[in-house]
């Protein structure tokens, strides 16, 4: 039976990989549609109905383009850059609980690859390694715009990681656990963490924008100043990997946001509806993805609404705005938790 479960885990791992890639693929399509909607255009509508085959056409175009590695580039690192970006983006999906548990006969199938004791910290570790992909790629290009882009990326990500970590600490004070599955289980009914941690949620959300290099924090690629930033010298599928990794990051960070603050696969009234457990699991996963898509839509909404920050504004918001706010949030949360235990 051990081997059977192992086989299931491997199968599930590939399923998650494929779903992540599929969602990221259609996120590029959705981004263009949302942008078109906001700017009163039609968006892609030639390839297939509603332009649904557009991502495939884009992928094919990327693959067919000429592959150029500049003569002055550090060859090995130049190739490693996009690979690291892609790998770290995909690795986080391992700890996210995508749903409850299916029970078939005496076997139970958990819709999570690994329920780590330290789930949140694992997510955080992958985010902090992700910066290497951008930094190495930018440096190895041997181009001043690429170098500037990668330096901006590194300083931005380190600055915002700090506030992100502090907002997670406040969340952990409330939940008393670092395991993502337990955090989701605690949020059944209306006990979503956003109601207990509104300030922490806002801080986490802003940091998630900064960590995924999305507008208004897309300074590392900033076309108007850095003509593409860290990926200026990249072409063909290596550029494709960088752009695609950004969409994967957006999907995964939406999943993390939903898991931490919006109840994950829990839905109010679903537990008491009297449906069979397997059906509830299935519906829960469907609701999970629905919530993720709403958060992804929010990401796109912000991108096409707000202008980009200036570099000094970015640093001021990070260090003088978010970090003190996050510390204040920890103080408030800590004292509330302490005194509610004390007077009980």
């Amino acid at each position: 039976m051990e081997g059977f479960q192992l086989g299931y885990k491997i199968f599930f791992l590939f399923a998650i990989l494929l779903i992540t890639l599929l969602v990221a693929m259609y996120a590029t399509w959705a981004e263009r549609k949302v942008a078109a909607f906001m700017q009163d255009r039609r968006g892609p509508n030639r390839a297939g109905p509603l332009g649904l085959l557009q991502p495939l056409a884009d992928g094919l175009k990327m693959l067919m383009k000429e592959e150029i590695i500049p003569n002055t580039a550090q060859r090995a690192l130049f190739i490693m850059g996009p690979a690291i970006a892609m790998t770290t983006a995909l690795l986080t999906g391992v700890v996210i609980p995508w749903g409850g548990t299916f029970t078939v006969g005496s076997q139970s199938f958990s819709l999570q690859v690994a329920d780590l004791d330290i789930g949140i910290l694992f997510v955080f570790a992958m985010v902090s390694i992700g910066v290497y992909g951008i930094m190495l790629g930018g440096w190895a290009s041997n181009n001043k715009y690429a170098l500037l882009g990668s330096i901006r990326a590194a300083s931005q990500m380190i600055s915002y990681e700090l506030a992100m970590g502090l907002s997670i600490i406040a969340l952990v004070l409330v939940t008393n656990t670092l395991s993502l599955r337990e955090i989701v289980e605690q949020q059944s009914g209306w006990h979503w963490n956003i109601l207990y941690q509104p300030l922490g949620f806002v801080i986490f959300l802003i940091c998630a924008f900064a960590e995924t290099n999305r507008a208004p924090f897309d300074l590392p690629e900033c076309e108007t100043e850095l003509i593409g930033g860290f990926h200026t010298e990249y072409s063909s599928m290596k550029l494709g990997f960088y752009l695609f990794a950004e969409y994967i990051n957006m999907f995964i960070s939406s999943a993390v946001i939903v898991t931490l603050y919006f109840g994950g696969y829990q839905m109010p009234l679903l537990q008491d509806s009297g449906l069979s457990p397997n059906l509830i699991t299935l519906l829960g996963s469907a609701f999970f993805f629905l919530k993720i898509f709403l958060v992804i839509f929010f990401f796109m909404w912000v991108r096409w609404t707000l202008p980009r920050f200036r570099y000094d504004q970015l640093m001021n918001i990070g260090w003088k705005g978010l970090v003190p706010l996050a510390i204040l949030n920890i103080l408030i949360t800590g004292s509330v938790v302490f005194f509610s235990d004390y007077f009980k």
Binding site: L116, D117, I118, L121, F122, F124, A125, V127, S128, I129, V131, Y132, M135, L136, W139, I151, A154, S155, I158, E161
Partner: peptide
């Protein structure tokens, strides 16, 4: 596990990024 992840976050994710910088 905790030590492993903190090791990655602190050393690999922060200190070595600054080295590289």
């Amino acid at each position: 596990q905790f030590l492993a992840v903190v090791h990655i976050i602190v050393y690999t994710g922060a200190i070595l990024v600054l080295f590289l910088f």
